[in-house]
Design a protein around this nucleic acid. Structure first.
Length: 573
DNA sequence: GCCGTTTTCGGCCCGACTGTTTTCAGTCG
């Protein structure tokens, strides 16, 4: 069983945690964390890279030592260095360190002074009042530890889907905007970068002197616990468990603060380094030269002082955007208004909720010039999938409706199942009568990567294959992607004139950002679609567009930015 | 442990808040 990137990353995360407890050089620890993060965000598998003879040290943050350690992990499945650390330090210390308010230093002290090895021992020590005796610990720390242990998990832990974060962020921002003296309220962090999930919500506020916004924030109806409250920063936990950080800065610092709180952290560190080399200090209050503020009112100013053009939030992941900005080769990112239509939608004829007419009307309201109706095929019986007869009837119904529609064309389509042997779930004679075929895997998720890849490539051999629907099959936080050689799929699609879908369902977001970036490099075009099962779900397109921007896509990389005529040409293979 | 348009050695982003202290360590983002 080949090692997945995430397994290599987890080993490095564990090494970093143990080194931290061990009191190792902080920069060495950072190197392991950085490598873990980089590896888990690669688009292709490290195993393949090694097999193809690629030099791992070309990956930023991976030097000779870490490259060698990766090779050992790939060969043997484990890392002797981690084994050695685990033999000296109890694995349970990692759980202790995950508690809010407990870091490596406290975990080390608890182990060394009191012999505490796991959460169970920690609980007993806290209950018997032994923890408060330790230097730098006290009654409050002890009480906090006990509360954390009893809860069983860290406050605010676990990531939320972007759509869930929106549900909380929007009313909270409206509420804060009404607070006296408040000028601007902007969600920053991974939310602004449109990451598919967010760990916590970072909200930036600018206001006049003497504003009461901090008290209004901690007094918000939905707050369950105030974790900390200061003049410029406060942290609360909402009743849903979502953690929210509020930062307040003066107007002159707005741009610097927004840049800082938008992150990502590696992007910020890289920008600050460039600043340092030019003799500037950059923090959330501005850009400083000899303690004099020279910029920071806008984000553009911050970038300008380090000699860069503005970089869109979705690109700020330190994945090459700074280098391309320096060279002036950043793409002009796609916007929602570039899209001419949606190419994957369902109606009440299968498992959708609205009629053909209702879906058409919703598309008109969005200003689309086309909408593809792509109900399920017969194989998906739980969704009342269409057989040949029912599909023919739907084709007729669409023809009739198109005669009466103004400004919108309904495209006759299907989401047809790719069967286990790589054939499609309906005969060519009926598929031929359609404008578009979205082809998806809904069964046999457990095939080996080789079998799954060949199954899909074989399906693509059929000249009627247009778009591979939700290509990886993952459901965020509930189902892993099936094993697949995505690189071969993308190259196969490119060779055959097929396209890959970016499915905008909030828990799919499939393809991932790193895959989209790779698709753009390979030159395979993308269909950004919602897979809407309800007319209201057409609005999910904002998630897809956010994800597409994170994948560096511009309007030219996407098929449904084309006019109807242009699109029809692309769909004819 | 990584990295280099000052460097192959000596740096490595920067600040807020809490609790335990009485000037600061630890944690967090």
């Amino acid at each position: 069983m080949p090692i997945h990137n995430s397994e290599i990353a987890n080993i490095f995360y564990d090494v970093a945690a143990f080194l931290e407890i061990d009191g190792a050089n902080p920069f060495r620890i950072r190197a392991y964390r950085g490598a873990a993060r980089t590896i888990s965000s690669l688009s292709g598998s490290v195993v393949d890279r090694i097999a193809q003879g690629h030099d791992l040290t070309e990956i930023p943050g991976i030097g000779r030592d870490l490259a060698h350690k990766i090779e050992i992990i790939v060969e043997t499945g484990s890392l002797p260095m981690l084994k050695e650390l685990e033999s000296r330090l109890p694995p349970g210390l990692k759980d202790i360190m995950r508690l809010s308010g407990v870091g490596p230093k406290k975990a080390a002290a608890l182990y060394k002074e009191l012999g505490i090895k796991n959460l169970e021992g920690l609980k007993k020590a806290a209950e018997s009042g032994r923890i408060r005796e330790l230097r730098n610990f006290g009654a409050k720390v002890e009480a906090n530890i006990l509360e954390e242990v009893n809860r069983g998990r860290k406050e605010g832990e676990g990531r939320s889907l972007l759509i869930k974060a929106e549900e909380y962020a929007e009313p909270l921002c409206r509420y804060l905007l009404k607070s006296k003296g408040v000028k601007k309220v902007v969600p920053a962090g991974s939310y602004r970068r449109r990451q598919e999930t967010v760990g916590d919500l970072d909200i930036l506020v600018t206001c006049k002197k003497g504003s009461n916004v901090m008290n209004d924030f901690t007094g918000y109806d939905d707050v369950r616990k105030v974790v900390s409250q200061g003049k410029t920063r406060s942290t609360v936990i909402l009743r849903s468990g979502l953690q929210v950080d509020l930062r307040v800065v003066p107007e002159v610092s707005y741009g610097a603060a927004l840049h800082y709180f938008t992150g990502s952290k590696p992007h910020n560190i890289a920008i600050r380094k460039i600043g340092l080399n030019k003799g500037y200090k950059i923090n959330e209050y501005g850009v400083f030269k000899n303690d004099k503020r020279i910029a920071g009112r806008t984000e553009e100013e911050v970038y300008e002082t380090v000699g860069l053009p503005y970089i869109e939030p979705e690109l700020r992941e330190d994945r090459g955007e700074i280098r391309e900005a320096q060279q002036g080769t950043l793409p002009e990112l796609i916007r929602i208004e570039d899209l001419q239509g949606d190419l994957h939608t369902h109606t009440d004829e299968t498992d959708g909720r609205d009629t053909l007419e209702e879906m058409a009307q919703a598309a008109q309201e969005r200003g689309y010039s086309y909408l593809a109706v792509t109900d399920h095929s017969q194989q998906v019986s739980v969704a009342k999938g269409l057989d040949e007869d029912r599909l023919l009837k739907q084709i007729d119904a669409i023809d009739r409706l198109n005669d009466s529609l103004k400004g919108l064309t309904l495209l006759k389509g299907i989401e047809v199942d790719i069967l286990k042997d790589g054939s499609l779930d309906l005969p060519d004679r009926v598929l031929k009568r359609l404008d578009i075929r979205v082809c998806s895997v809904h069964s046999y998720f457990k095939l080996s990567a080789k079998e799954q890849t060949e199954r899909i490539l074989k399906a693509m051999d059929n000249p009627l294959f247009n778009v591979l629907g939700h290509p990886s099959g993952r459901l965020i936080q509930s189902r892993e992607a099936y094993d697949l050689d995505m690189e071969r799929i993308m190259e196969g699609a490119k060779e055959r004139g097929c396209f890959l879908e970016l499915n905008s369902q909030p828990d799919r977001m499939d393809l991932r950002d790193v895959h989209l970036k790779r698709a753009r490099e390979i030159g395979v075009l993308i269909s950004i679609s919602t897979d809407a099962h309800w007319s209201k779900n057409l609005d999910w397109i904002r998630f897809g567009v956010g994800q597409a921007r994170r994948g560096w896509l511009s309007s030219a990389d996407v098929i449904n930015t084309r006019s109807l005529t242009g699109l029809r040409k692309l769909l004819k293979r």
